[in-house]
Design a protein around this nucleic acid. Structure first.
Length: 604
DNA sequence: GTAGGGTTAG
């Protein structure tokens, strides 16, 4: 039957590119359609491997006969190149042309559903797989589990597929573990891993990587150390992804010395190894993060998008404008400036480094913007005192149809607060709850209390606190305390300060504010008590530190430090500024002792 | 000739 089918002449001619390929394989004419189809499918696959999506599609269009294998190569190819929607469209077109999908097709298109985060697409493919008798094929079952684990609100559907699967492999177990772990439930991820071992399924390097990731998310380093021992037992130290996961785990557990040791002991490192350490240090020590970045470049590794997001955030954290500009140049040089997430990081960096005009330029030049782009720009405007611009941007954002989230509302509330736009802010707060179904958390309440309190409506702010459905945390009380201090309301301020000190007895600033409130009321006994408590904490307090970039150096200034080569000129200028301020009518804030304002630590 | 799960960011 097959032989007869092969001899049926082509209705459409064999494309020239396939004929050339057939001649290169030293085949003699006449060329059979099936052989041409096999060759074309091979060519399609190699085009996708090179990322030549257009060539692959052109060849597919020219194929005289397109069987299920060719269609599947297109579906899988598009997904591999991150064109999940095109992959889905191919699948739809294939069904419309009456071609019956096989297990390869279904598992490929399910990967596209996962990429699109589309539960309904996945469920529709599941239905088709049942209809065509493809459920029970291990690749199909695993792909179904993966799509459900990624797109559903709970793991119930994925667990059901796992439970009903005829055959289970290490891939099935790992998919289930990853499902739990990627949604932040590392405990369940580890539970599945233990079950996997108890059922004598052999864990692969993939299983170990995800188990280590699960440890990172639970913060259970003891389990991580056991896993590290098991990795040595199984001889998997040569696996880069496994070792990279271990470095990442130590970074997340804030054990940077272990992370560094593991990193140093790795004979082979790739870009991910470096990026893992750089991102780990960015979370706790931005200076060291930049030093590691410099070592990475000097060892010949080319930074990518992951590297740049970390180092740009480190520059933002340290407010290093020159350094940030140099790294920005590196991003442009590598053609990564069109990347949306990197542009978002740059908006944030320039705003934090004091150059809001550069943030605005990057924002304006972005061909498309996401939620983070709008939010970063709004936060930048708010921090620079451009409340009205931030509010205008918020309206523009709503008009553009971007879906709003909690952080955007924090940004707009904070901007309203700094611009004194109280009624607008309250309207946004109300629409957030009623129009967008966002439940306010402590951060949002802090913004609302600050909005009212800053505008002098301190009693109204206190009413908001009293009516909160959950107990206010120290940040909410802190916003109220700040307002009480600014608007001279000692009694309410004392109440707020007491709540803060209950939760955070180590907050030196709160003792300072409270002692000044007592002083303003002439309650000298309580004033003395607070000052004594402050002295008791004094040794534990980290000194406040400021710094400034001067040419190629960074000068840092630490509170109470009088040493340093430029001390005299610094104090001379400082005193001159204070003199001008006093002449302009400034009354010094009693919360700060003047002799503690500045000191020079030196240059590093 | 077509299909799988892992590590780096926000």
């Amino acid at each position: 039957m097959n032989a007869v089918k092969q001899c049926v002449p082509c209705i459409r001619p064999i494309p020239a590119m396939i004929l050339n390929a057939l001649q290169n394989t030293h085949q003699s004419p006449p060329f059979l359609p099936q052989r041409a189809s096999v060759l074309a499918t091979n060519l399609i696959k190699s085009y996708f491997e090179k990322g030549s999506v257009n060539e692959a599609h052109q060849l597919f269009d020219e194929m005289p006969e397109r069987d299920v294998v060719a269609w599947t190569a297109m579906i899988a190819g598009y997904t591999a190149c991150n064109y999940d929607s095109l992959s889905w469209m191919m699948f739809y077109e294939m069904l419309r042309e009456g071609v019956k999908p096989n297990a390869f097709t279904v598992s490929s298109v399910l990967k596209a559903c996962k990429g699109m985060q589309c539960y309904s697409c996945g469920a529709a493919v599941h239905g088709l797989a049942i209809k065509h008798g493809l459920v029970g094929y291990i690749y199909v079952d695993n792909a179904l589990m993966d799509v459900y684990a990624t797109c559903c609100a709970t793991m119930d559907e994925a667990c059901m597929v796992f439970r009903d699967a005829n055959l289970k492999s290490d891939v099935s177990w790992t998919t289930l573990m990853a499902g739990y772990t990627h949604r932040g439930d590392g405990h369940s991820g580890l539970r599945v891993f233990r079950q996997m071992l108890s059922e004598e399924a052999k864990p692969s390097t993939f299983s170990f990587s995800i188990a280590i990731k699960a440890c990172s998310s639970t913060g259970l380093t003891a389990h991580g150390e056991q896993l590290q021992a098991a990795i040595i037992k199984y001889g998997l130290e040569s696996s880069l992804p496994v070792m990279n996961s271990i470095v990442d785990m130590y970074c997340w557990c804030q054990n940077l010395s272990e992370a560094r040791q593991c990193f140093n002991e790795m004979h082979l490192k790739d870009l991910i190894t470096w990026n893992t350490l750089i991102s780990g240090y960015k979370r706790v020590d931005s200076n060291e993060c930049l030093t590691i970045f410099s070592s990475m470049e000097s060892q010949g590794f080319t930074p990518n998008y992951f590297t740049f997001t970390s180092v740009i955030a480190a520059c933002a954290d340290l407010a290093l404008l020159n350094c940030g500009q140099q790294i920005h140049a590196g991003i442009v040089l590598r053609g990564l400036d069109r990347n949306m997430a990197l542009a978002n990081s740059l908006i944030d960096m320039y705003a934090k480094c004091g150059s809001i005009s550069d943030s605005r330029k990057i924002f304006a030049a972005m061909p498309s913007k996401d939620l983070v782009s709008w939010t970063s720009m709004m936060i930048g405007y708010g921090a620079h005192g451009y409340g009205k611009e931030a509010v205008e941007l918020f309206h523009e954002m709503v008009r553009s149809g971007v879906r709003l989230d909690r952080v955007v509302f924090m940004a707009v509330l904070s901007a309203c607060s700094h611009a004194g736009l109280v009624s607008e802010g309250l309207r946004y707060f109300s629409s957030m709850v009623t129009g967008y179904n966002i439940i306010p958390d402590q951060d949002i309440y802090r913004c609302v209390v600050d909005l009212l309190g800053r505008a002098g409506k301190v009693e109204a702010a206190y009413e908001i606190i009293k009516n909160m459905p959950v107990d206010p945390d120290d940040s909410v009380w802190g916003a109220l305390l700040g307002s009480c201090k600014a608007h001279k309301l000692p009694n309410l301020g004392k109440l707020a300060a007491e709540f803060i000190l209950d939760a955070r007895p180590d907050m030196v600033r709160t003792y300072l504010m409270l002692s000044n409130l007592y002083a303003s009321e002439g309650e000298w006994e309580d004033f003395a008590k607070m000052r004594n408590l402050m002295k008791g904490l004094g040794g534990k307090k980290e000194p406040g530190c400021s710094w400034i970039e001067l040419k190629n150096d960074i000068c840092s200034f630490v509170v109470g430090d009088n040493a340093g080569p430029q001390m005299e000129s610094v104090y001379e200028i400082l005193n001159s500024i204070i003199r001008h301020m006093k002449e302009a009518g400034y009354v010094p804030d009693g919360d700060f002792d003047q002799e503690d304002v500045i000191g020079v630590e030196g240059v590093f």
